[in-house]
Design a binder for these strands. Structure first.
Lengths: 407, 407
DNA sequence: ACAATTTATTTCGACACTTAAAATAATCTT
DNA sequence: AAGATTATTTTAAGTGTCGAAATAAATTGT
């Protein structure tokens, strides 16, 4: 069903609208907010007065009005950066990266810690993360009370629901509990997401008008990941670990994958898969435990460009795996856009013809023709940017859209 | 973004809630509606008075209260059957089936017309359907003004957005416009959907508490179809022709499919695909144009049960195609439930071991373990039931939730 | 310098909706 | 027939949005 509606709901939704408009615009006078939200100026006055009173907004006239128009000058409102803060913890192979951002989305601190992730014991991961976060905070003279939420973006299959990391290239262990211990040890509410989903989230925050429908962000690199946006919302399956594009089967009984199965797309299109093919190793050669060094992949790319047949062939095999995977996804979901990114995007041109041919081969024209396929240069930072955006949007919707009970 | 909220929105949502509760309960007194919706009795009085006044509800005390409790007896309310009507047109190979149902969901008329669908010219389909509908109505002393919406459930790929049938086993032609001509010629608003989606819709209306998340209804028969429910709503892709599970590639460069591509799941798991395998015909044998007679499939099933190796092998091949397709879908979407239905369900036991083995082979345990796989006996009527449910729900939400402007 | 003009914001009065509490209705019990 | 009990309606208060009117704060013109 739905929930019943009352005047609380109206206020909540309209407050949310105002916050969203301001986050989109950065700064705007009340008239502008009226235009953006469709609300009357009277309502805008009422809502912004409340938000100012609660310390979420700031009257911001630091920038002198450039225009020399007649009439009462407008006074810009903006989100109050110090209303609260969020922390992003990005977990990847061998390192923990932390970013502290204020309520306006500006990054105020940044730290990268080298951590020997692979051999960590299952319960040390959360403990280590929590202690790094607490140290990071006190280094910047902040207390846990200043931070409203921690968002973890991790490589691998993340169960957002329970906050476990089902598996990840960064760890030998599986089913690592993250949100619970980190929440408990820091006293800060904590959420876990998959890194590719966070890229999708970041793109949406930037060009949300483009994401009315369904879009998939494919992420090629050490593994093959995907962020899936359905009807404008990132999709998590029943467990929160959906959209495992990399571990969608490509060839029954095919090449050995890091996940223990055979024939996954990743076994052909990830760094290690491409390398294995290029080296002519049998498809059941176990994948290496550590990430393939970028230099190795760059060398492979170079020799492919110089005409090395084995290297070229490996990129074609990778393209076929990606292409048929996309064809299957298109048959199933018919997305509006597919965006391919990740470190592997460097060599995209080598795989692209095979990708295109495989899509043609794998799905009828009628379904394919409406899909836009784009590539996006990799930006590691986008994972963090996307996570910040998502955390702040979540806070706006779930926390700050609710009016504080009057004193 | 969202839309702004005002008091209209509240009323709309709460009216919708009352209508939904009454559709769910069939008949209920006001106190009961209060409990079901969470609204106060004062509000229920106000809303039901309005709905009674608009003719959508009926005070219904035809059934004498069985209970002999003390206190003022309650008076049941129910949906007014004659408030409006809906028509379902089910299009399948060789026949058009029409059902007229009242606002309470009761069927009041039913007609099956044999139509030589396959060779119809592209613009004759809509004309034929419209004239049959008009004749059907006048036969039952109804005028188009008594009907608020026509819902078409068609086999094949339906573009709900534009109302075209992209392709269908029933027609030689492709891209057949349906909603526009039928709407124009009958004067009744018209919508097109895929038949498997309507089964999913019917299941949801009956057990909507089971469909909070993601569920897929696979439909095996002449073709292989799918209805996909994501977050409790049937999913249509960018064009409205998503969820073409049957035409998701199974084996690159594989068996020839009716859609013109090679290696689709349907090419192995549909009636004609199974038959082709059993007969030992080469995989590039073109599929027959007409539906395979049920008797032929039943004979095949019988010989498989009697130990015919070729027949058994064909069901195994079909099971592999379905199983790997499901494995791929699970990797991508991690649904809560998968339901397999359709006429092909009769021989499900012959394919089931192969389905299970292929799912095991094709997707890691961690993703698979949360998925419930069920089979559902085929009921052709469920397509019609589901369409009626969906039409009425759509009307409740889009039309009747809005209060009529006061006279 | 100051009135007129222009643009932004706030205030006011009307209206819609929900709700709790009080009032009313319609039955059964004793 | 009075009292008890359950269902429904009415009433009064509270919250929210909106259009119109009022107010604020600038520029322009003289």
């Amino acid at each position: 069903m739905m929930n019943k509606a009352d005047s609380d709901l109206i206020r909540r939704q309209n407050r949310h609208l105002v916050l969203e408009a301001l986050r989109f615009a950065g700064r705007a006078p009340r008239v502008e907010l009226g235009r953006l939200t469709g609300l009357s100026l009277a309502t805008i006055t009422s809502i912004t007065a409340q938000l100012l009173n609660e310390g979420l907004l700031l009257e911001d006239n630091t920038v002198a009005p450039i225009t020399t128009r007649r009439g009462r000058p407008s006074v810009d409102l903006s989100l109050n950066p110090s209303a609260t803060h969020v922390i992003v913890l990005k977990i990847s192979i061998g390192k923990f990266e932390m970013v502290l951002a204020d309520y306006a989305g500006t990054r105020v601190a940044h730290q990268i810690k080298t951590v020997a992730t692979y051999d960590m014991k299952i319960h040390d991961v959360g403990k280590k993360a929590a202690s790094l976060i607490l140290a990071f905070l006190s280094e910047h003279n902040k207390s846990p009370a200043d931070v409203r939420i921690i968002g973890i973006a991790a490589q691998g299959a993340a169960e957002t629901g329970v906050g476990h990391l089902m598996w990840s290239p960064a760890f030998k262990e599986v089913n690592i509990p993250l949100t619970e211990p980190i929440s408990r040890l820091t006293g800060i509410y904590c959420r876990l997401s998959n890194d590719a989903n966070m890229i999708a989230e970041g793109l949406m925050a930037r060009e949300h008008y483009l994401y009315k429908g369904t879009a998939a962000v494919i992420f090629m690199g050490y593994g093959v990941g995907m962020g899936l946006v359905i009807d404008g919302k990132t999709y998590h399956g029943s467990t929160g670990a959906a959209a495992e594009f990399g571990h969608m089967n490509h060839i029954p009984h095919g090449a050995m994958c890091r996940c223990g199965m055979s024939g996954c797309i990743e076994a052909y299109a990830s760094d290690y898969g491409i390398l294995r093919t290029a080296q002519g190793l049998p498809v059941n050669t176990p994948p290496p435990l550590d990430a393939v060094e970028p230099e190795v992949m760059m060398a492979l790319e170079t020799s492919a460009r110089q005409g090395d047949g084995a290297a070229l062939g490996a990129y074609v095999k990778a393209g076929e795996a990606i292409g048929f995977g996309l064809a299957r996804m298109i048959a199933l979901l018919s997305p509006d856009r597919i965006i391919i990114s990740g470190p592997g995007i460097r060599a995209f041109d080598l795989a692209e013809p095979a990708i295109a041919a495989s899509i043609d081969e794998g799905v009828v024209t009628a379904l394919r023709q409406n899909v836009k396929l784009e590539k996006l240069p990799m930006d590691h930072d986008m994972i963090i940017t996307g996570t910040i955006d998502k955390l702040l949007h979540d806070l706006d919707r779930e926390v700050f859209a609710r009016a504080e009970p009057a004193a």
